[in-house]
Amino acid sequence: MYIAAILSRIGTVHTSHLRKMQHSLFSDLNELVAFVALADTGSFAAAGRQLGRDPTAVSRRLTAMEERMGVRLAERSTRKVALTEAGQTYLDRIRPLLHELQAAGGEAVAFAGGEARGHLRVALPGNFGRLWLTPLIVDFLHAHPRVTIEVDTSNRFVDLIGERFDLAIRLGELPDSRLVARKVADRRRLVCASPAFLERHRDIRSPQDLGRAPCLCYTGRRDPYRWNFVGPGKEKTGVTVAGPLASDDGELLVEAAVRGLGVLYTSDWYASRELANGGLVELFPEWSLLDPGAVYVVTPAAAGTPSKTRAFSNWIAEKLSSPPWAIARG
């Protein structure tokens, strides 16, 4: 215990001594700027005018530096200040460092506001990204040549902060979060089927009839086999469904519906092209599905958002302000 106490004391003395040395050697940024201004102008008065400070403040900063370092950095006279050899050596070392600090600050400001630049890491829902965001991303890169983008389309619910993503596009309802969510478009749920299927199943006239019809179920939903509707008079009804195919691949289900395999519960953005060309027909357009949600841009923080992130978010919001997948309800 005695030896341990001695070693502990030695460690304490050593740490304290290092701190004193560090404090004596290192000046704050204001002192360095004042020292460079003094070296460039040659007088306290001129340095004060350049910095917008009283000449006595410049003199005090020089004196403080010299006292901490234990060396004279400049010779003073009533009209002129000249650097000593130690002062000139110190100036030669710190001047490029100050230039680097100023350049770094300018680059940081450029990231926060001004021209978009830098590398963006973006997470997208895979199918939605491929169907609707691919051309928007390419167009964005043409418009912002100083930005590069890395896109993750794995459909993972990525941890933006932990995995260092700048931005994500998310669909549906969002849980409470410290993240900042910006709604950029609506999306609507609907049920649909092919004309050939409806020709064979003419008895499907209301949501309740789906309980005995072959249905195609998307397993990415919380309860894929329970479809809940709200009628034109705000009445609610729910139906339990089953069918020949269930999957978490929305494109597979759309293809199955187009080929007459069953009734599909989907989003308007997923089936819009097939609805537009007549490959699918919406059922019960006067009924709404109890499945709220939208398209969101999600970012880690609102304050201090880099220009690259803000520019991409604004680009997506503008391009999706009139959703290209929106289908008029018939």
Rank of each mutant, 00 (worst) to 15 (best):
A34E: 05
L98C: 08
R72I: 03
W132H: 15
G114N: 08
L91I: 01
E150V: 12
L38H: 04
G114H: 04
G114Y: 01
F128H: 09
V138T: 14
E107F: 04
L120E: 06
R49N: 08
L133F: 06
T134E: 08
F128K: 05
H144E: 15
A86S: 15
A143L: 07
E85I: 04
L141Y: 05
E150H: 15
V151A: 07
A37F: 00
D152P: 04
R76A: 07
E115Y: 03
A34I: 03
V122W: 12
R130P: 00
T78A: 07
V147D: 14
P96E: 09
G70N: 09
A86E: 14
E31T: 13
L62I: 01
N30F: 00
I137Q: 10
A108P: 05
D139H: 13
G52E: 08
G70H: 11
D40W: 03
M65W: 01
F140T: 00
V33R: 14
F111I: 01
D92N: 15
A46D: 12
V109T: 10
F35H: 06
T134D: 08
D92M: 12
R60L: 10
G106Q: 15
D40G: 08
P145F: 10
E75P: 01
L29M: 09
D152S: 12
R49P: 00
L131N: 01
I137T: 10
A34H: 10
F128D: 00
R130H: 11
V138R: 15
E115T: 13
T89H: 05
A110T: 04
E107M: 11
Q102L: 14
T89K: 06
R146V: 01
L124D: 03
A108T: 13
G105M: 09
T89F: 00
R61K: 13
F111M: 12
R61L: 09
T63G: 03
P125Q: 09
F35S: 06
T41C: 10
I94M: 12
I94C: 11
V151F: 02
A39L: 03
E150W: 07
F44Y: 14
R130M: 03
E100D: 12
G70V: 01
T63P: 02
E100V: 08
T41H: 12
P96M: 08
E67K: 05
L133K: 06
H119R: 15
E150L: 15
R53M: 14
T148D: 14
D40E: 15
P135C: 13
G114R: 06
P135R: 15
A37Q: 04
V138D: 14
Q50K: 14
